[in-house]
Each structure stands twice: as C-alpha cells, then as structure tokens.
C-alpha cells in the first residue's frame, strides 16, 4: 500500500478514522434531541478559534477547541434557560463566530485566504504532527464520554424531564454533550473542514435510522458508516486529487440514499408481515412473540 508510505497520509488516515468514530457517536445524541444543526453552529464559532490561533501563533487546534467549548456551553445555556428569542441569540453567536474568524485570520501575519479555505473545507496535507497529537487526545475523550455514558446520555436526550426526576445530574450531562460536540468539531476540522463537520454528525445517523430499530444498532451502524466514508473518502482524495471533506460528505449522502432505497421495500415487507400476524392474532395464544415492526422511513 503506497498510500501508507507517506507520513502525511498516515496522519490523515488516522485523523479520518477518529473523525469517522467520534462525529456520529456524538451526533446521534444531537439528532435524538432534534438539535441536528448544533454541530454546524459550533463549526462557525470554531473559526474564531482558528483565527485566534493564527494571530497568537499557537496551534489552531487547541485554541479552536477552547473557543468551541466556550461557544457550545453558551449555546447550551441559551437552550436550557432562554426560551424566547433563543434562535436569534444562536444566530448572533454563529455569524459572530464566522465573521470574527475571517477577520482574525486576515489580521494575522501567516493567515491567508488559502489557509482559511483548508480550515473551511478540510485538507489532507495540512494535518501536522502537532495536530494529530491533539486530535488523538480529544478523540479519546469524545469516545470515552459518548460510549461510556451512553445509557445516561440516551435517557436525557430521549426525555429530559423524566431524566431529571430520576435524579441524574442532567445539567452536567447536557454540558458534557455540548463540550463533547465542540471537541468533535475540532477533531474533524482538519479533515472534513468546519463547514462540513456537522454533516458527519448527522448523515450517518440519518442513514442508519432507515434500517435500524434500536438505539444501540443505530449507534453502531452510524459509527460504521462514519468510518467507512471517512476512510474511503480520504483514500479517494489521495488518488484522484479532490477535496477530502466534500468527497466524504458526498459519500455519506450516497450511503444514505442507498439505505433509504433498501429500507423502503424492507419496511413494506415488515408491515405486510405485521398485518398478517395481526390477522392471526386472534388464534395465537397470548404471550406469543410479537410481530416485527416496520421502521421509520
């Protein structure tokens, strides 16, 4: 495999693998509570972090991580406290973050529009050794949090009010989701780019939903799809010289379309089976195993 000979490709593929795991792993909770676009908002805010990193001449990944965490915590506070005009406040935050980033990058000495574009849309050659260390540490945290606390995070995203009455530290867990989403954005930033980060949080989950019936399956399948598209997208980008972020996202959409096409007849046959079982129900003894249900399309 000549692709693995180049050190920059080794780093790019490792980063891609980690993005493929982490983005759907946190994205599933955001989708579950109908906050699918939160990742996009954090991506906008992250740009200010990147600009700040250029201006201060430090690692943009760490500065972006810090700024993202602050931005995500503010978003979470707006979500949980400010009922009215919450969307206006979020819009301010998103576009403020975007504009701030563009401004800061232009003010810095080594910042250029070409540099900006690699952060917006991702680039393989720019994943430095320093970046990959940061990406590994952040990804480890994201994986530990999203998989280790999946029962608790599932509960608060399924029904927050009920979760509070079970005595779970809901406020803390909500902040954990926000912080984890923010760190995932910085993990994914170098490979898929800030404007496409959110796609990897949402599309693999949406694709899995087409055929999965349980949360556990959806989670496993999303991570599988995530890893599949990030690795194959990165490889394609190496051979064909196309931007990796766009390749990965288009592949993810391809998987979504393919699974939707498979799921439609599957759901129909399940529904037919169910209808048959229900006809039989009057004769079947009670306690007989239930009919398989159709899935959401």
């Amino acid at each position: 495999m000549e692709i693995l000979d180049a050190a920059f490709m080794q780093r790019a593929l490792l980063a891609a693998l980690l993005v493929g795991i982490t983005a759907p792993a946190i994205g599933i909770y955001l989708v579950q509570r109908h906050q699918a676009l939160m990742g996009d908002g954090i991506g906008h805010v992250a740009l200010t972090g990147v600009g700040l990193g250029f201006l201060l001449n430090t690692s943009p990944v760490w500065v972006a991580a810090t700024v993202c965490v602050v931005g995500a915590v503010v978003m979470e506070l707006i979500r949980s406290y400010g009922k009215a005009r919450g969307d206006i406040a979020l819009a301010m935050l998103f576009y403020g973050g975007m504009a701030g980033g563009v401004m800061l990058i232009n003010l810095s000495d080594n910042g250029s529009n070409a540099n900006l574009v690699t952060y917006l849309f991702g680039s393989l050659t720019t994943v430095s050794e320093q970046d990959i260390t940061a990406i590994c540490i952040l990804a480890a945290f994201v994986i530990l949090a999203t998989l280790g606390l999946r029962r608790q995070l599932f509960a608060i995203c399924q029904d927050e009010e009920f979760a509070r009455v079970t005595g779970l530290p809901v406020r803390l867990l909500n902040l954990l989701i926000a912080v984890t989403a923010a760190l995932t954005v910085t993990v994914a930033m170098r490979v898929v780019g800030l404007l496409l980060v959110s796609a990897l949080m949402v599309i693999p989950v949406a694709a899995s939903q087409q055929i999965a019936r349980s949360f556990a399956t959806t989670l496993a399948l999303s991570v599988g799809i995530g890893v599949l598209v990030t690795l194959s997208g990165t490889t394609t980008s190496y051979y064909v010289d196309v931007p990796p972020g766009a390749t990965i996202v288009l592949m993810a959409i391809g998987v979504f379309v393919a699974l939707t096409l498979i799921a439609t007849p599957l759901a129909r046959s399940r529904a037919r089976q169910k209808a048959l079982d229900e006809e039989r129900c009057t004769l079947a003894e009670p306690g007989a195993p239930g009919a398989p249900d159709d899935v959401r399309v």
């Binding site: 029962r151 599932f154 079970t166 349980s214």
Partner: peptide, 28 residues
Amino acid sequence: PQRTTAAAGVPATVREVVSAGRLARTKL
C-alpha cells in the same frame, strides 16, 4: 410525564426506553 409519545429523534426499542427508568437506581 404528560406525553403523547415515548419516541424521540432516533429509533429506540421498548426495552431501551424503559431501561432509562433504572437510572434512578444505577445513576452513572
């Protein structure tokens, strides 16, 4: 709680939803 549905944005099985109740005892 007053709800018309037990579902959210991601598929979940009956067992998964009901298991959330046990978190009152297992916590973290």
